[in-house]
Amino acid sequence: MNWITFIRNIIIGALFGLLVPYLIFRYLDSEGLVFNYEMMILNGSLYLAIYSFFGLFKKETALRFIMGCLYIGFIIYFYTSGYTIYTFYLPHCGFGVLCLGGEWEGVKFSLSYIYWYTAVIVVSLKGVSILRQLIKPPDEKSKIKRAARQKVGLKE
């Protein structure tokens, strides 16, 4: 188990999944007219849970690779429903489709921004990164640390 990364991911997940969007969007849209706070909290909590869990596994393990594949599945979900750091916390109505609506200076409007090419590139790069973590040979420092831990009888 990789407790240090686990704790680091909890902090990052709580900060960018819940605290930052809460502070920013409570300030921008205090009455909740444009943003759906329930979805923001739900997706933020999901991001926190999954990202923290993902950090629990050592990089060069098969289990981490499988978890990485599941994590990519959730990124695809986030690009579909929005409200996370991956989508700048904005609402979505489809994969890579940002949708905003409301009334501005008395004019009713709705805006769609279609950027699914970018979403596909980000998801693919995340996949490449997870694959790289699996096949990359551990460097000398990691080897020495692992050998030392095995020597004192600690489990990997």
């Binding site: 188990m1 596994f57 050592k58 060069e60 393990t61 098969a62 289990l63 490449v128 990164s129 694959l131 790289r132 699996l134 096949i135 990359k136 040979p137 551990p138 692992r146 990997e156």
Partner: peptide, 22 residues
């Protein structure tokens, strides 16, 4: 499953090369 994968030693250079490409 939890520990590092046991790749063959001969693949070390190839994996290093592949990780640089990635």
């Amino acid at each position: 499953t939890l520990g590092p994968l046991d790749f063959k030693k001969e693949t070390h250079h190839f994996r290093k090369f592949l990780s640089i490409v990635l």
